[in-house]
Design a protein around this nucleic acid. Structure first.
Ligand SMILES: [Mn+2]
Ligand SMILES: [Mn+2]
Ligand SMILES: [Zn+2]
Ligand SMILES: [Zn+2]
Lengths: 135, 135
DNA sequence: AATACTTTTGCAACAAAGTTGCATTCTTAA
DNA sequence: TTAAGAATGCAACTTTGTTGCAAAAGTATT
């Protein structure tokens, strides 16, 4: 955990360790709010915002787009952390029943052909439906 | 314009017509804020929220996920409006330069295989990069 | 281990975004 | 034209996100 921070040239602080810990312990993506409810008593709301921002910039976590005003975050894989930019290319799944969003690490985003003149930099795919736990 | 509302069993009001008009006149997807700046002097902020919500439910517009806390909305095609549920299956593109988000109506979202146990209901694909206007 | 330097944190104050209840106004259909 | 129902505006409120700055903690150096 400290290694992750050091590898990203970040100083090791209690709040960063705690927030990393929360991510490591979670099997699904977390919104700011989720993290806040887990540690708002220990750390300030602003610190959580700033920590998530920092983790994003360092490629420790990635964010998952949504249409519910709840941007969710999940840990990146090794490659993102060591290189400092994102190598995630997987599909995300949000369950309509339990509401959880997960990384489908083994499901790659298929290629797509854009019209002439468009240049792709990043791509996101989010599937909604029923997850295997709720099935 | 009135037809669209009537087909969706909505009463025809000034604000609904105006917001529809704004969508029809726009070549890119609009966030709540965009609409507000165009007609906040005429209609209350709350009315805009409620109108977007209603249009969404009736399948007149669809929303486009994002990681910037700006959910954007775009007009649906005929099929969505007449059947009342969404038939959009196209890719969205957000330009990193001009910031505009557009529907790529001709680019279908490719199929993707989910792991066992997952059931797909809806799928969203958003590509970031440089659009043809900014190229 | 103590120091100096840098970074992070907490707090306060604020701004922006979104929600809710209710009285008034507008639509629609009889 | 009227009565019933639906939509709107307003006020009040909650939640979310941002910024500046002083205090605290972390890091590197001696
Ligand atoms: Mn992921
Ligand atoms: Mn679209
Ligand atoms: Zn589920
Ligand atoms: Zn552009």
């Amino acid at each position: 955990m400290e290694d992750i921070l050091k590898n990203s040239a970040l100083s090791v602080t209690a709040s960063r360790k705690r927030i990393l810990e929360i991510f490591l312990a979670s099997d699904n993506a977390l919104a700011h709010q989720d993290i806040e409810t887990k540690c708002a008593d220990q750390y300030d709301r602003v610190t959580i915002y700033r920590t998530l921002q920092t983790f994003l910039e360092k490629g420790i976590i990635h964010n998952i787009p949504s249409t519910d005003n709840m941007i969710r975050y999940a840990l990146c894989n090794e490659a993102c952390i060591t290189t400092g930019h994102h190598h995630d290319n997987h599909v995300h799944f949000k369950c309509d029943d339990c509401g959880k969003t997960v990384c489908l690490d083994d499901v790659n985003i298929p290629a797509v052909n854009l019209p002439k003149g468009y240049t792709m930099k990043e791509i996101n795919m989010v599937v909604n439906g029923i997850c295997k736990s709720c099935k």
